[in-house]
């Protein structure tokens, strides 16, 4: 079961890296969050903890439903081009990300001293998701892609936290969820502003401030 979920997380991350249009990226982000939800839910059933049920519920409501809905609404309302603006084409991106997969495996196995094989794989996947999120932030040009990249990094951290220490303390987890949600809303607000003032959301062209 766990293997299937991890495979799902990996596959949806690869799909995100080769996506060329923003709605596709958001859809794959939704898949990834859904797999995270499944992972948390599975642990919750196993351990019978009310905290974990609440966290899984929040994950579903915020990351699977609310945030993708909100991002889709921004796209509809702004009527900007749906093209992501790839610095690096899809094939090369995929190659880079495969390299990241190997690196995170090496990092997880050699440095973090995992207890067993299963934990090593989970650590590697978590680090890989963080790296892939960073890749998206750096090599995609629109402001929306940067927001999604940030969310992907955050997903990776969630996976990491649940792997290494059985999750953060409950109220910290809740605070982080709230924080992520608020930051997405605030960033969305700034994307509106950028679109209004500059009539585009290509962050590569934001270059008034220099030196």
């Amino acid at each position: 079961m766990q293997a299937i979920i991890l495979f799902g997380v990996l596959a949806s991350t690869y799909l995100m890296v080769i996506a060329k249009r923003t709605p596709a990226l958001i859809r794959y982000f939704r898949y990834q969050s859904f797999f995270l939800f499944l992972a948390t839910f599975a642990v919750a059933i196993e351990e019978r903890q009310i905290d974990l049920y609440i966290i899984a519920g929040l994950l579903f409501v915020i990351k699977v439903c609310a945030i993708p809905y909100f991002l889709n609404r921004i796209i509809k309302r702004m009527k900007v081009s749906e093209d992501l603006g790839l610095f690096v084409n899809a094939q090369l991106s995929l190659l880079c990300v495969l390299g990241f997969t190997y690196l995170s495996w090496v990092f997880a196995e050699r440095i973090l001293a995992p207890r067993n094989e299963a934990q090593a794989i989970m650590l590697a996947v978590a680090f890989f998701v963080v790296l892939a999120g960073m890749f998206l932030m750096v090599f995609r040009m629109t402001a929306l892609a940067q927001i999604i990249g940030l969310l992907v990094m955050e997903n990776g951290l969630f996976l990491l936290a649940s792997t290494v220490s059985g999750g953060m303390p409950f109220f910290v987890e809740i605070a982080i969820f709230f924080d992520v949600f608020v930051s997405v809303i605030i960033m969305g607000f700034f994307v509106y502003r950028i679109n209004k003032l500059f009539t585009h959301i290509d962050v590569n062209k934001l270059s008034r401030l220099k030196g």
Binding site: L150, E154, I194, V203
Partner: peptide, 23 residues
């Protein structure tokens, strides 16, 4: 607005690494 965008994005990425360190 450009400054605010750069501020929020760069600091958010930075802070994600801090969370990684905390974990």
């Amino acid at each position: 607005i450009e400054a605010a965008w750069k501020y929020i994005i760069i600091c958010s990425v930075g802070i994600i690494f801090a969370l990684l360190g905390t974990i």
